[in-house]
Design a protein around this nucleic acid. Structure first.
Length: 273
DNA sequence: AAGCTGTCCTGAAAGC
DNA sequence: TGCTTTCAGGACAGCT
């Protein structure tokens, strides 16, 4: 399931394959994703050059002169590079062609989305971007970010991280992994974190996300890079999806808990409170 | 206002 | 064996 590292790995692939190239055609085979695909607005971009790529939280941004295309991979989405004239495979919904090669969105569960934001619109005012917390892999993210944002919160730490109001891009896998490395139980109230806890958690989040980007992301079910290459961070996970298996640090069986209707994985020995 | 719950969707796994 | 049910998850609307 794509979280920040998977989106970043995808972005790097798109950037290296297609930056500077001209968008020659747009095809929408299945417009019913999480939100309706803006087929007309996308089609009008044909003929423009892909100037560059960026990312905000888990949104991948493709910059053209008159607009930027905002892609979210949902939980099963991936962008693939394919020959422009190749036959459509099951669950491939949208194609952006750049001459002979094209980028195709493959998303079995269709939780992904594609939006088109005109150049004159302020990205930060967009409904999906407004209200998001700081980017974790920037200097703006500090222990104080977490400490301040968590004051007065009754919510558990796991849901607090997933909510994205303090820091963005940390999804279910990396939240469990970060809390393990910071020795904090996911069920603890966020408001009860000490500054020292926030220092460890900050460091853990930065490390986990950076390592995951370097590992090509986590390929648990559907994710792959644009060339189909699989990430391998999941083989290094200490707790995620390891219920009943021995903790890699102390051999205590990993337990599964549910917070906010999402699975959390925890070692009760390494995460004492 | 913060923080729950339900919804979207499909494939895999579990249950019968 | 084969059908049915359950579960997983990110974002967000709609509640309380």
């Amino acid at each position: 399931m794509p979280e920040l590292p998977e989106v970043e790995v995808t972005r790097l692939g798109v950037q290296s394959k297609f930056a500077g190239q001209r968008l020659s055609a747009v095809q929408v085979r299945q417009p019913r994703l999480r939100k309706p695909v803006p087929t007309d607005a996308l089609t009008r971009l044909a003929g423009e050059v892909l100037r560059g790529t960026s990312r905000r939280s888990k949104y991948l941004l493709l910059q053209f002169d008159s607009a930027q295309v905002m892609v979210h991979l949902g939980m099963s989405g991936a962008l693939r590079v394919v020959p422009s004239d190749s036959a459509w495979q099951l669950h491939e919904h949208v194609q952006l062609s750049f001459g002979d090669l094209a980028l195709r969105l493959h998303d079995p569960r269709r939780f992904g989305s594609i939006d088109c934001i005109a150049a004159h619109e302020d990205l930060n005012a967009h409904a999906s971007i407004r209200g998001l917390g700081v980017e974790p892999l920037t200097p703006q993210f500090t222990p104080a970010t977490l400490y301040r944002a968590s004051r007065g919160r009754q919510q558990n730490c796991k849901s607090f991280l997933l909510a994205g109001q303090a820091v963005v891009g940390v999804g279910n896998i990396y939240a469990s992994e970060s809390l393990f490395r910071a020795a904090i139980r996911p069920g603890r109230a966020a408001g009860r974190l000490s500054l020292q806890d926030c220092e460890r958690l900050h460091q853990a989040i930065v490390e986990v996300l950076s390592e995951a980007v370097a590992a090509g992301g986590s390929s648990l079910r559907d994710f792959s890079g644009v060339g189909g290459e699989l990430g391998h961070f999941q083989t290094r996970a200490f707790v995620y999806d390891r219920e009943g298996q021995p903790c890699r640090r102390c051999a205590t069986p990993i337990r599964r808990q549910v917070h906010g209707q999402r699975s959390s994985f925890v070692c009760f020995t390494c995460q004492p409170r």
